[in-house]
């Protein structure tokens, strides 16, 4: 595989179609600069600032950009809110569409055929496999991310966290909580 990448990359560089320095910068960005910590900041801000939360639910792309997170695969974001009555789950049934600026790159299981199909056919069962049993009365909504629209789950703020500041709250937010395979 390494040889095949080398072959294509060297041809593209020679033809002036890509810039090697830009390739290095992209790798560095995705290995070190983006990840679920960004999304956790967004969630923690929404938990502590009601006006921000309103903006986030109305226009997620702009509200997320307020915190400096934007770019590839975050151009059209939609945030869906978990409530005591509704739990949201995000999947990309066709491939691996995922909100990079707030979550980084997706975990391996998100790209697997079993997750991509089970999340739609049996979302409750899929969530249970991640260790979360949802009560029967909780409605599960499944959101299929595409090349155009990407979803982020706004988890419920855990009980007993009233005294925590934004940093402490952000530390409680997990990647799986923002995909919807876990409840915080």
């Amino acid at each position: 595989m390494a040889l095949r990448v080398k072959a294509l990359e060297s041809l593209m560089v020679e033809k002036g179609l890509v810039d090697p320095a830009a390739l290095d910068a992209l790798v560095d960005h995705f290995e070190h600069k983006v990840g679920p910590r960004n999304g956790a900041r967004v969630v923690a801000r929404a938990w502590t600032d009601p006006a921000y939360k309103t903006r986030l639910l109305e226009n997620a792309t702009d509200a997320i950009a307020e915190l400096g997170y934007q770019g590839g695969q975050g151009e059209h974001m939609v945030v869906v809110e978990n409530t005591p009555a509704v739990h949201n789950l995000v999947v990309c049934t066709l491939c691996s569409c995922y909100p990079w600026p707030v979550l980084g790159l997706p975990p391996v299981w998100y790209k697997s055929a079993p997750y991509r199909s089970r999340a739609v056919i049996d979302p409750r069962g899929a969530i249970a496999e991640f260790g979360t049993e949802l009560p029967d009365e909780v409605e599960v909504r499944v959101w299929d991310s595409t090349a155009e629209v990407r979803y982020l789950v706004l988890p419920q703020r855990p009980a007993g966290t009233e005294g925590l500041d934004e940093d402490a709250l952000a530390a409680l937010v997990t990647r799986d909580g923002m995909i919807g395979t876990a409840r915080l």
């Binding site: 390494a2 080398k6 990359e9 593209m12 830009a22 390739l23 790798v27 975990p107 089970r118 496999e129």
Partner: peptide, 27 residues
């Protein structure tokens, strides 16, 4: 098992994966 592995926290398992991914974005 739906979750093949939990040990998947590294962004790229091998350098060529990062290079291929960057090539897609740059093109």
């Amino acid at each position: 098992r739906l979750i093949p592995s939990r040990d998947d926290e590294r962004v790229f398992a091998e350098p060529w994966q990062a290079q291929a991914f960057a090539l897609v974005l740059e093109l």
